[in-house]
């Protein structure tokens, strides 16, 4: 038996939710997540009709537009057993659909059904598969960025740390002020670009204090923000999604 999965039992069926940033910019994180889930005994499918969770519209106040995205995604994942996404923020948005529809409406019931089976990637491995050691190994000194929506709104705080602690060769260093936002905030990063810049610089200065050469996170959007600023400034810190580390077998 590995974790909660009985040997020889039917495989856990997972519908993979890549998110738009993952699909377009971070295919590697998605590939790693799929490979790892399969290795941990899941049967992974990818509903090709999936689009964006609608969060950019929702957070900007375009709620009618969000409704269309929500209905589409509810339909796409209607038949899924589990939905597993690689961004805490986008997974939270799928949970938020419940509040978009009228109380007691049929759409709301369908949104509740989606919420109940939708998990963030690390959360799914720890809470549903019951696995904390995925057998990964990776040589690096790393620190981890706790993304706001994943920790505060989705409530996933421990899972990524539990998984990373068990990666052989990986030395984790605490990130000071880890509860502070990195300054992404969706459209905030372009609408309030100068404030966002101050926030990301502050985050990077804390990352530098750790002297880690690798920054990990579970949200592509935050990583794109921090990573984009790090490369612009030419700082020697690599940025990766945790899936890439958790899928690593030490051959890199």
């Amino acid at each position: 038996m590995i974790g909660n999965i009985q040997k020889g039992a039917l495989k856990v069926k997972v519908s993979f939710f890549i998110t738009c940033l993952g699909d377009i910019f971070y295919a590697n994180a998605g590939k790693a997540a799929v490979e790892l889930l399969e290795r941990l005994g899941c049967e992974v499918e990818f509903p090709d009709a999936q689009t964006c969770c609608g969060q950019p519209a929702y957070n900007s106040g375009y709620h009618k537009e969000t409704l269309e995205a929500a209905k589409h995604m509810i339909e796409v994942f209607e038949q899924s057993e589990y939905v597993v996404g690689i961004s805490g923020s986008c997974v939270y948005m799928l949970h938020e659909y419940v509040h978009l529809f009228k109380d007691g409406s049929n759409w709301q019931k369908r949104a509740i059904a989606l919420k109940e089976k939708t998990y963030e990637f690390s959360q799914f491995i720890v809470e549903i598969l019951g696995i904390e050691d995925v057998g990964a190994s990776y040589q690096a000194v790393a620190t981890y960025h706790t993304s706001c929506h994943m920790t505060r709104l989705l409530g996933v705080k421990e899972a990524p740390f539990k998984l990373l602690e068990n990666v052989k060769g990986l030395k984790m260093v605490d990130l000071p002020y880890r509860h502070d936002c990195c300054g992404f905030g969706g459209t905030f990063s372009v609408k309030m670009a100068n404030i966002s810049e101050q926030m990301v610089d502050e985050k990077i200065s804390h990352i530098e204090e750790t002297e880690a050469n690798l920054l990990l996170g579970a949200d592509g959007s935050c990583l794109m923000n921090i990573g984009g600023r790090i490369t612009r400034q030419g700082k020697p810190v690599e940025v990766k999604h945790i899936a890439e580390i958790l899928n690593s077998r030490g051959d890199e």
Binding site: I18, G22, D23, I24, F25, Y26, A27, N28, G30, K31, A193, S196, E197, V200, M224, N225, G227, G228, R229, T231, R232
Partner: peptide, 12 residues
């Protein structure tokens, strides 16, 4: 202020 990654040729 920040670089934007280039979309990968092969999407996920």
């Amino acid at each position: 202020t920040r670089d934007l990654p280039r979309p990968t040729k092969e999407r996920f």
